[in-house]
Nucleic acid binder design. Structure first.
Length: 211
DNA sequence: TGCCAGGCCCTCTTTAGGGCCTT
């Protein structure tokens, strides 16, 4: 069997991450308030990262309610700069996964720019991939996909570590489905990135060509 | 609860509009 996609990293280790933030747009002044991440290697969680961070201003009541993160909780949290420096060390140059990755990438880029740190891994978006693989799902919100795939969870949503754990489980479920449904021996980050670039109409034909 | 932004993606499209996702 020959797979016509390229392995980018010697070990298929990825970091699945999720930000909680003060709003939707760093260009409008929004900042990160929590980062959560799990590191996957060979289909297993080998490390975790979770930290609240103080954005330097009060967050809105909407965000307090949405995330369960209060201004009191953030009052004694370390600064975004301190936390993001640690997180930059955590992710290193590994490839990255997030649900609706364009959102998390904007905040990661904005926060790391503040401390002049960089990363060289590339992003894959679990939402774009799920839209192609699970076209019958009622919608492609993270919580809906967790239910659709019957993935066990602890009922916590909109907290960074809980959401990154669920995104990691969704990622592993997609890898497993590719192995079972398309007899792919070693589906990896690069293949899933390629899936996100296919049209919904052509993605299954693309997958059948992979072996 | 919704607004704010931005990218993707579909369609009654491409000289555009609007829903889906993320907080």
């Amino acid at each position: 069997m020959t797979l016509n996609y390229q392995h980018k990293k010697p070990a298929d280790t990825v970091v699945v991450l999720d930000f909680e933030t003060t709003g939707l747009s760093p260009t409008q002044g929004d900042r990160a308030i929590e980062i959560g991440a799990v590191m996957l290697k060979d289909g297993k969680v080998i490390d975790r990262f979770q930290q609240l961070m103080n954005p330097g201003f009060r967050i809105s009541g909407f965000i307090e309610n949405y995330t369960g993160i209060s201004n009191l909780m953030l009052s004694d949290a370390p600064s975004c700069e301190t936390v993001m420096a640690d997180f930059a060390d955590f992710i290193g140059d590994y490839n990255l996964v997030a649900h609706n990755a364009s959102f998390d990438q904007r905040f990661l880029d904005a926060e790391l720019r503040q401390i002049n740190r960089h990363y060289s891994g590339s992003f894959a978006c679990s939402m774009l991939i799920a839209r192609r693989l699970y076209q019958d799902a009622p919608n492609h919100k993270l919580g809906s996909l967790i239910s659709y795939k019957n993935i066990q969870h602890d009922g916590v949503f909109h907290r960074a570590l809980a959401d990154s754990e669920m995104t990691a489980d969704l990622w592993l479920a997609m890898l497993e489905d590719l192995q079972q449904d398309f007899q792919l021996v070693n589906p990896d980050f690069s293949l899933l990135q390629s899936i996100a670039k296919q049209s919904k109409a052509n993605v299954f034909q693309f997958l059948r060509k992979q072996n």
